[in-house]
């Protein structure tokens, strides 16, 4: 395991109006780590993830990406976001573009890669997620699992150093969850640094290097998966695991 720090969060706070959703969050993610954020809905885990690519503006605290203390005022957010890919719960594919157009959009427009090169890269990525035959299809013709795999390929096309996943399987029919998790596991095995908000405890247990349990805007427990599941230290973690054990 590399010691290079990819993400460092210090004393992060975030409120929506009167609602204090993130309370003094501190967290460090190293290169090639897979960190799973778990917890009940409303615990702040999605907001934390969205702060990491600055779709949500932090109130105070510091967020370091690969050593840079990112300040929205002084940093080019668009450059930072190229280093931090994001996969959404509802895929958010561009419905007016075909699969391959979805994937080459940002490389050609933002990275200024030639169209031919972008297409070649996109085809490689489609092969990797097992959808090379869907290049010219519109997203509305895909299943949820296929859409999410395209979304993963689209994010990877920007060659990010970090990938964020916001409940990537929560909108999927149960039989389609597996194919998306398999793609994510493959990515983890290749050494991608990943932060994953998920309710899939099986995936967290098998793939994660670290589990972060959040409750009411705070990190309650941070542990290795085997410790977290077999030997949780906090009372609230035990309660949480009881409610998820049935699922």
């Amino acid at each position: 395991m590399s010691e290079r720090e990819m993400i460092r969060i210090e004393h992060l706070n975030k409120s929506f109006g009167d609602l204090h959703v993130l309370k003094d969050i501190n967290l460090s993610v190293h290169e090639s780590d897979v960190v799973c954020l778990v917890g009940a809905s409303g615990s702040g885990k999605s907001t934390l993830l969205r702060c990491l690519n600055f779709l949500e503006r932090k109130d105070n605290g510091n967020i370091f990406i690969q050593g840079d203390n990112i300040m929205p005022k002084t940093h080019d957010m668009n450059e930072v976001r190229q280093r931090v890919g994001m996969v959404f719960q509802h895929f958010n594919l561009f419905p007016h573009k075909t699969v391959i157009e979805n994937i080459i959009e940002a490389p050609t427009v933002v990275r200024k890669v030639s169209k031919a090169e972008a297409i070649a890269e996109a085809k490689e990525l489609l092969k990797k997620v097992g959808l090379e035959d869907k290049a010219d299809v519109y997203p509305s013709k895909l299943s949820g699992g296929q859409k999410q795999r395209v979304a993963i390929a689209r994010a990877l096309a920007m060659k990010p150093d970090i990938m964020l996943f916001d409940e990537p399987t929560s909108a999927l029919d149960p039989e389609l969850v597996g194919e998306v998790l398999a793609t994510m596991k493959e990515l983890a095995d290749e050494g991608m640094t990943m932060v994953v908000v998920t309710h899939e405890m099986g995936f967290a247990r098998e793939v994660a290097d670290w589990i972060v349990y959040m409750n009411e805007g705070q990190i309650i427990e941070l542990d290795r998966p085997e410790e977290f599941f077999e030997n949780p230290k906090e009372e609230r973690t035990k309660e949480f695991l009881k409610t998820t054990a049935l699922k």
Partner: peptide
């Protein structure tokens, strides 16, 4: 147009105006 479209564009490093022009307006 779903606000997820803007977020997807921004998350890929596109500016707000590029996302409006290339993603939001065609839809």
């Amino acid at each position: 147009v779903d606000k997820g479209q803007m977020e997807a564009g921004r998350s890929l490093g596109m500016t707000r105006s590029t996302t409006i022009r290339r993603i939001i307006l065609p839809q």
